[in-house]
């Protein structure tokens, strides 16, 4: 199973990878991208099974990336990992088709609860 992590912070991508390992999912293949445009290129070349994306990024935000995926017909489960966790943002995320929103700072348990539904 392949997971795509999208965040303009390389540190955050490392932290998400570490958290996936600590949650017991270190065996999964992880792809990475630094913004929505890079992420779209990755998906076109090697579609993942699950996407974790930051919200605010240069060169195409997480929301714009999700909209682009829908326009291109991809149906990959998508969730945000973001500091933007207000009720309004959660509603926007759900309306756009995101399956979950993990707010920063997060714990291993937060990731485990979300991932159990999507990772086999």
């Amino acid at each position: 199973m392949k997971i795509l992590i999208v965040d303009d912070s390389s540190a955050m991508r490392m932290i998400v990878r570490r958290t996936l390992r600590e949650a017991g999912y270190g065996h999964l293949e992880v792809l990475q991208a630094g913004d929505g445009n890079q992420a779209l290129d990755v998906v076109r070349k090697d579609p993942p099974d699950l996407i974790f994306s930051d919200w605010n990024m240069p060169n195409k935000s997480g929301l714009e990336f999700l909209e682009a995926l829908k326009e291109e017909g991809y149906k990959i489960p998508f969730g945000f990992v973001t500091t933007e966790a207000t009720a309004e943002m959660r509603a926007k995320a759900t309306q756009a088709g995101a399956k979950f929103l993990i707010s920063k700072p997060f714990t291993v348990e937060t990731f485990t609860k979300v991932l159990e539904a999507y990772i086999k």
Binding site: I15, R18, T19, E22, K104, P105, F106, T107
Partner: peptide
């Protein structure tokens, strides 16, 4: 502590 735990571990 919550943020530092996310950065460096629990």
């Amino acid at each position: 502590k919550e943020t530092v735990a996310m950065l460096f571990g629990e």
